[in-house]
Amino acid sequence: MAETLAIIDYGSGNLRSVEKAVERAAREAGLARHVSVTDDPDIIRKADRIILPGVGAFAACMEGLSARDGVLEAIEHVALIEGRPFLGICVGMQLLATKGLEFGGSEGLGWILGEVVPLPHSAEFRAPQMGWNEVRLTTPHAVFEELDGESFYFAHSFHFETENDAHLYGVTRHQHDVAALIGRDNLLGAQFHPEKSQTAGLAFLGRFLSWSPS
């Protein structure tokens, strides 16, 4: 029986692009996966895996997620209580933080301690960061171990500063090292867009789809 994966629809993110990329990654990895883009709490609660995408402002994304009746509770049930694999993409990753400082600051989910702060910028390193950049692992992780040093597509003006270095799995260079991959236990967050990252992005999604957190 095919595993189910729920891509959370809360009014933010390139949902169709993520859906198509996940379906292709599953095919190329030879995995049977049923993918749903949904804001139905019942479907989310039954999902074997969850992807939370996100684009735009932290506060607006958090507000949109909180406004969907029962969705946040369903995600928490799957990710925190059941411990099933969870992937946050871009702002979907940033929402895992304690707080985001954009537009005066707003509370995040608080699942991974830290703050989302403005990217450093200079004449050489401008914000937002738009385009391809190398990702280096700082902590071994099964989903990324064969992709260390690959380039992925980024589009962001803020970055996640983890409170605990153990939750920082990978970095990219933007004036200095900034978080590209974070997580703990069954939670994983990618600042880059795997759905826009071609071969490397599909490989990353394929490895997430087969990942069994220990």
Rank of each mutant, 00 (worst) to 15 (best):
E19P: 07
Q198I: 12
S17C: 10
L96I: 07
P41C: 11
A180F: 14
E163N: 12
V35K: 04
D165L: 09
L109Q: 01
M1A: 13
F158H: 02
P128I: 07
T4V: 13
G30L: 13
P118M: 05
L101H: 05
V117C: 03
G88F: 10
G92F: 04
N133Q: 07
P120A: 02
K46M: 15
E107S: 08
T139L: 05
Y169G: 01
L188M: 15
F152R: 00
F160D: 05
L168A: 09
E161R: 09
S212L: 14
H193W: 11
S151W: 06
Y169V: 10
W211N: 04
F58H: 01
F204K: 01
D165N: 05
Q191C: 14
H167F: 10
V117H: 00
R136F: 15
A26I: 14
N186H: 13
V171A: 06
L52H: 02
R84L: 12
A67I: 04
G183E: 06
A47K: 01
L209N: 02
L80T: 14
A190E: 07
E115Y: 08
G105R: 01
Q175E: 14
C61K: 02
V116D: 00
G183Q: 06
V135S: 04
L65H: 00
V135W: 04
D42K: 15
A123S: 08
P128Q: 02
L205R: 02
A123P: 00
R49V: 08
L96C: 03
N186C: 13
P213S: 05
L80D: 09
E146I: 09
E150Q: 10
R27Q: 10
I43W: 11
V116R: 02
F58T: 02
G56Y: 01
G83F: 08
M130K: 11
F160N: 02
F192A: 07
L15V: 13
M93V: 04
M1R: 08
E76I: 11
T38C: 07
I182M: 10
D39V: 11
A166G: 03
G83N: 10
A155W: 03
K99W: 14
G114L: 01
Y169T: 04
I7N: 03
V35L: 09
K196E: 04
I44F: 11
V91T: 03
I89R: 01
N164A: 14
G70I: 07
D40F: 13
H77D: 15
G56T: 02
M93T: 01
G110K: 00
A6Y: 04
V22E: 01
S214D: 09
G92P: 00
S197V: 13
Q191M: 15
L5G: 09
M1C: 10
A59W: 00
E23S: 12
E195P: 02
L188K: 06
N14I: 14
R84Q: 06
R45N: 08
E146G: 03
E146H: 06
L31T: 05
A67Y: 00
S36D: 14
V55M: 05
A142E: 11
E195T: 07
A97I: 13
Q191W: 13
G189K: 09
S197P: 06
N133I: 11
H156C: 03
S36T: 15
L72S: 10
G108H: 05
E28L: 15
E163I: 11
E146S: 10
